[in-house]
Write a protein that binds this DNA or RNA. Sequence first.
DNA 1: CACGCAATAT
DNA 2: CATATTGCGT
Length: 245
Amino acid sequence: MSVEDNAFLAMEALEIGALLCIEKPVTLDMLKCLWQHVAREKMGIYKEKERRMGTIEENNNMRGIEFRGEIEDEHNIIGSDNMKDKILEGKKKISEPEYQIVNNKVKRKSVHTEWTQELHGKFMDAVGQLGEGMCFPKEILKLMKVPGLTRVQVASHLQKCRKNNWQPPEGEKYQQNNVPAASLDTDPSGQNKPRRFGSMPRLMKNSFIVHQEKASEVSKSHFEEEISNYVGHETTTMAPIKNSH
DNA sequence: CACGCAATAT
DNA sequence: CATATTGCGT
């Protein structure tokens, strides 16, 4: 670290053996960036161990860690040779593992969200509050209030649930039969897709209760006009799923 | 832009 | 396998 933002000085340092040069002061942002690289490197070192143990425990021995130069440039960092290349391709999505700290252990952030029944429950709650025709990933996400969850993830889950293709993970089968979703359809013609926006996921046969809001409450905004327009293109036999009971 | 959907990738 | 990502039309 140096107060001097001097390229020549930095290059000299690198030649001597510095791994990278950072201009002072080291910002929090910088730190947030750096520790990920440290973690990656460390994880690489203990890769074998990781295979055996599943997770890596925090280890404060930092020796042996080397940066390989793929640091982003926003903070006046100067790194090794291939760094420029790395910076250039920085715009591309390089999928580097991300690490997080869960109770004092450094863990590789899991790429998949496990849709447990609990999480799915929150999802369904949100869906229930929004009601038929109002279920959008964005809104659902808001209502769910789950920290790491993204809109796209919700969208993906929603997509699956609409096709009734979701089932709880292994250890959680409250119910044992997965419903193939074939024949409980209200549409006799079979080929009629309920093509609308914001439709609720189809409820699984013995899934728990979803409390729907009074459907009457749905105001006829411009939104509803859009729907009717859009539906107009489709076969007319489709009826919205009203929660009439 | 957000959305939805199928196909494809991880 | 379950999810994530992508491509493309709306």
